[in-house]
Computed example of a mutant assay.
Amino acid sequence: DGLTVKENLGLAAAVHTGHATRLWSDSLSKPEVREIVAEVAEQVMLMPYLDAKVSEISYGVRRQLEVGVALATRPLVLLMDEPTSGVGPEMAKGFHDLLNNLPRDLTMLIIEHDMDLAFDVADTITVLNYGEVVFDGLPEAARGSPMLKEIYLGSWEDA
């Protein structure tokens, strides 16, 4: 919380570039670290917050920073557990845009109850019900599935 957004991104980038293992090294002075910080900050819409301490930014911006920190390590797979949990509708819309603008070669596994987000960003949807896979297919098929509607909305006939 005491570091700035830029410093947090810089630490993650330093891990990726190997500069994090050098004691007393100012990793943010390294051109390759600064380049990653700038690129990731742009990707996750953090440019206006780079010099703000994390303790001063909103919860939603912190969620963006979490994604940014992960991206700064240059992952092959990005795992996210309910990235829009606890954020308002405007920030959730921002996350839709953020996730849609990530590189298409980045594999993402997202656990999400915001079905609009899931349908918007997923190439494939897998649905679990009580730990069992009950659907695995395209978002369009999931959206139109009577079985999924029954599981998540319930039956009006029983009321």
Rank of each mutant, 00 (worst) to 15 (best):
V69T: 11
L99E: 11
G94E: 14
P83N: 02
E82H: 05
G60R: 06
V37R: 11
A41C: 04
E82A: 08
M80C: 08
V33S: 07
L98G: 08
L71Q: 09
A38I: 00
G86K: 05
L46H: 10
L99A: 07
R63C: 09
L50E: 01
V69Q: 07
Q64A: 08
L71R: 05
P48G: 11
S55P: 00
R63M: 13
D97A: 13
R63Q: 15
S55N: 06
E82W: 06
I57A: 03
E82S: 10
H96K: 15
R74M: 13
V40L: 11
G60Y: 09
R63V: 03
L71H: 04
V40P: 05
V87S: 01
P89T: 12
M91C: 00
V40G: 05
M91K: 04
G88E: 11
P48Q: 14
E39H: 06
V44R: 10
I57D: 04
P89Q: 13
L46M: 11
A52R: 15
L76A: 13
M45R: 11
M91Y: 02
S58N: 07
V69D: 01
R63H: 14
E82K: 07
G94V: 06
E66W: 02
T84R: 06
P83S: 01
V54R: 08
A72G: 01
L46K: 06
S58K: 08
D81P: 09
E56C: 01
Y59V: 01
E56S: 13
L50M: 13
L65K: 10
V37C: 09
R62V: 04
G88C: 04
M47Y: 00
V54E: 03
G68S: 10
V77N: 08
P89L: 15
E66Q: 14
T84A: 13
M45Y: 15
K93V: 01
I57C: 03
M80D: 09
L46N: 07
V40M: 12
M80L: 15
D51I: 03
V44Q: 12
I57K: 09
K93T: 07
S85H: 06
V87M: 10
A41K: 09
V33A: 02
F95S: 03
L65Q: 06
L79I: 15
A70N: 08
D97Y: 10
V61H: 03
D51M: 05
H96M: 09
L78M: 11
A92G: 01
L50H: 04
L98C: 05
A92H: 04
Y49P: 00
L50C: 05
S55G: 00
L76G: 14
G86V: 01
S85N: 13
L71D: 05
M80F: 12
